[in-house]
């Protein structure tokens, strides 16, 4: 029988290589679960997130309330699942905005020499602030809505992406295919779109997962400090903040959202590492 070569898409190949790593596969599983929970929240949780059950305040985990109830008798599991929704929404939006803006700035800084100095000094200035401090300052200036949180966190993360992209562009622009395109008469825009951008996807994907994780963590920290989304919104950070007063009597209040944050962020980090490893051979070949 003749051997048939099947064309495998690079995406599938990457997934295959990723899933061969057990830790990364487990991380992906956790994230899919969190994502499914967040998306399907209204249909899978037994209670409404704001429903109070005054008679069962601070109830320990039981069959009715798997993760117990809080000081108003609200179901903790329900609020965790709704919190996942918020965390994923914030993390996802911050990831999109930060990678988008960072990509643009990094491309311009790396390829258009005149802009390099200015753009990199601005990113240096932004990166000189501790993340959380910059985020709090921006929140103070913007206001406490979800959009404001996204804007603040994206502002914190964008310089990181810009740095990584610029570094990759500086390597790529020295490769001869960029020079070949210039010799053919390609415009700057064409070189960036056709020759640089597709070769930046790999480092960008890896960076995006780390930003996702960092955004979730910083959002939780902002909420915990009272500088995030309004306290009525069930968010993991808000839940931990509220639980402080009761942690002696009801440790599940602080453990549940804490473990949710830990698992999600850890999974994202592991996934990012896995992606980097899975992508690495191609990166190395490209950058040789």
């Amino acid at each position: 029988m003749a051997r048939v070569t099947v064309a495998v898409s690079p995406g599938l190949l990457l997934l295959h290589r990723l899933l061969r790593r057990r830790l990364a596969a487990a991380a992906l599983l956790v994230l899919v679960a969190v994502l499914a929970g967040g998306l399907l929240a209204p249909w899978i949780v037994p209670y409404a997130p704001q429903r109070m059950d005054i008679l069962h305040r601070l109830a320990a985990p039981s069959r009715l309330h798997w993760l117990g109830t809080d000081e108003f008798g609200r179901d903790v599991l329900t609020r965790i699942v709704y919190g996942a929704r918020l965390s994923l929404l914030v993390g996802g939006l911050v990831m999109l905005v930060a990678t988008g803006c960072g990509l643009l700035l990094g491309l311009l800084a790396g390829y258009v020499r005149r802009l390099d100095g200015v753009l990199m000094r601005v990113t240096d200035a932004l990166m000189a602030f501790p993340d959380i401090l910059l985020a709090i300052a921006l929140m103070a200036a913007l206001g406490p809505s979800l959009i404001d949180v996204v804007v603040a966190l994206a502002t914190v993360q964008t310089p990181r992406v810009a740095r990584v992209v610029r570094g990759a562009v500086l390597v790529l622009r020295e490769l001869q295919f960029v020079e070949a395109a210039e010799a053919l008469g390609a415009t700057d825009a064409r070189v960036m779109r056709v020759h640089l951008l597709p070769n930046l996807i790999s480092p960008l994907v890896v960076q995006a997962t780390f930003i996702f994780a960092a955004a979730i963590l910083t959002e939780a920290a902002l909420s915990f400090l009272g500088a995030g989304v309004p306290p009525t919104v069930p968010s993991w950070g808000n839940m931990i903040a509220a639980a402080q007063l009761y942690m002696q009597q009801a440790d599940w209040l602080i453990l549940a959202p804490g473990i949710a944050i830990l698992l999600t962020v850890l999974s994202l980090q592991v996934l990012g590492d896995g992606l980097r490893d899975a992508l690495d051979p191609r990166l190395r070949r490209l950058m040789r």
């Binding site: 490769l175 295919f177 070949a180 395109a181 008469g185 020759h195 597709p198 070769n199």
Partner: peptide, 22 residues
């Protein structure tokens, strides 16, 4: 640009002179 159609270049490194994504 218009003149580049009439003058072209062949590069040294057959690896880095072709965009791996195209």
């Amino acid at each position: 640009r218009a003149l580049r159609r009439r003058m072209q270049m062949i590069f040294q490194d057959p690896y880095s002179s072709l965009n791996p994504r195209l």
